[in-house]
Design a protein around this nucleic acid. Structure first.
Lengths: 196, 196
DNA sequence: GTTTTACTGTACCAAACAGTACAAATCAAC
DNA sequence: GTTGATTTGTACTGTTTGGTACAGTAAAAC
């Protein structure tokens, strides 16, 4: 047992949960160690600093999402999938009692100037997710299901902005009403751009 | 000179700037004191704790916005005003080199469970801003400039979600492209709901 | 089987943290 | 101008912070 590094993975997963809950700056390394049942020794061995741990957390988190093993995925192929893309975030918020925001947004918001490496991690994921949604709209447009004036990139940016803002508003208000309204308006807009 | 409490106000304004820049959790009380040129004595006298200071910051910040003395205002009366409402946020981001997000969102995101009072401050402001935009759309609808199916509250929520998400994405990506796209799509949607 | 290498546990450090104690100064009222 | 409240400066406290030192253990390499 104890694959290549059991302790390392436990630390990453504990940190992810705590970072998502309270943010990076409000989470101490000792909290992560206590939660994962590890010690300072392992921590220094696997990550040279807290930034190193945060980097590992971002790598793990984006990997999980890209592989489709997260509660919220980016495998959008149909119009129904797009609706579900919003719904899965709203459902997630309900499952965590509206106490969190998007993990990428939460961690990304805590990144400061002297952490360029971490900001790149976040930026790369944002570009990946943008490409994912852009591809969907591009395909639909190529299939003649969207009017010629529709801009795939802009539609993708609309969805992601609403998701980020909606997740944050939900956490701050402890209810999904604004998020749900914004999502349904976005879907109505997309519907208005569809050919019939 | 030195009105009723010069030091108190200096602390609040210094804290607002630091909180907006780095977040509440990444800002120490000592940093605020150094920046405002005050001491621990004043701090304990005017605010009994860091939470007390944060509360005062939120009160000041929301007051400034409500009074229209902030770079971003909510005095929306015409369709052009709505476009400017988005533009002023984008302009603000450019003026701070894309290094910040919405101050309310930044502070609100740092609030944890045991800070109900602070969360109420944030929540009340969100409801105020939502009402402001809702009133605009309601008036336009009453004036017959919006189709009957248009939902004022939902349109307001759409705008605020995009603003919050767009501000956050701008900070994380260090560019306004996604925010600008999302805002222009929202404006296009609103335009499609207008009677001609 | 010995010698590297990888991993883990415990103790420790200096700095930073939020908050307190309390005397000194400033101001207002009378 | 003496009294009493408000305001300010400095020193301090106990705790938590991120990070290090280093010895011990397990595992792999030869």
């Amino acid at each position: 047992m104890a694959l290549k590094s059991d302790a390392r993975q436990r630390m990453v997963e504990a940190a992810l949960d705590l970072f998502h809950r309270q943010g990076v700056n409000a989470t101490s390394v000792d909290q992560v160690l206590a939660k994962s049942g590890t010690g300072k020794g392992q921590f220094s061995h696997y990550f040279k600093s807290k930034d190193g741990l945060t980097h590992a957390v971002l790598q793990f988190l984006t990997g999980v999402i890209k592989d489709g093993h997260a509660p919220t995925g980016y495998d959008v192929k149909t119009w129904k999938d797009l609706e579900n893309w919003f719904l899965q975030y709203i459902e997630f918020q309900k499952s965590v009692k509206f106490e969190r925001s998007c993990p990428i947004g939460t961690i990304g918001n805590d990144v400061t100037d002297d952490q360029e490496l971490l900001r790149q991690d976040v930026k790369l994921f944002l570009e990946w997710s943008r490409n994912r949604l852009t591809r969907f709209f591009t395909e639909k447009k190529a299939a003649g299901e969207l009017v010629a004036s529709a801009k795939p990139e802009a539609l993708a940016d609309l969805c992601i902005s609403i998701m980020q803002g909606g997740m944050l508003l939900t956490k701050m208000k402890r209810e999904t009403d604004m998020f749900e309204n914004a999502a349904s308006q976005a879907l109505a807009y997309v519907r208005s751009l569809r050919t019939r």
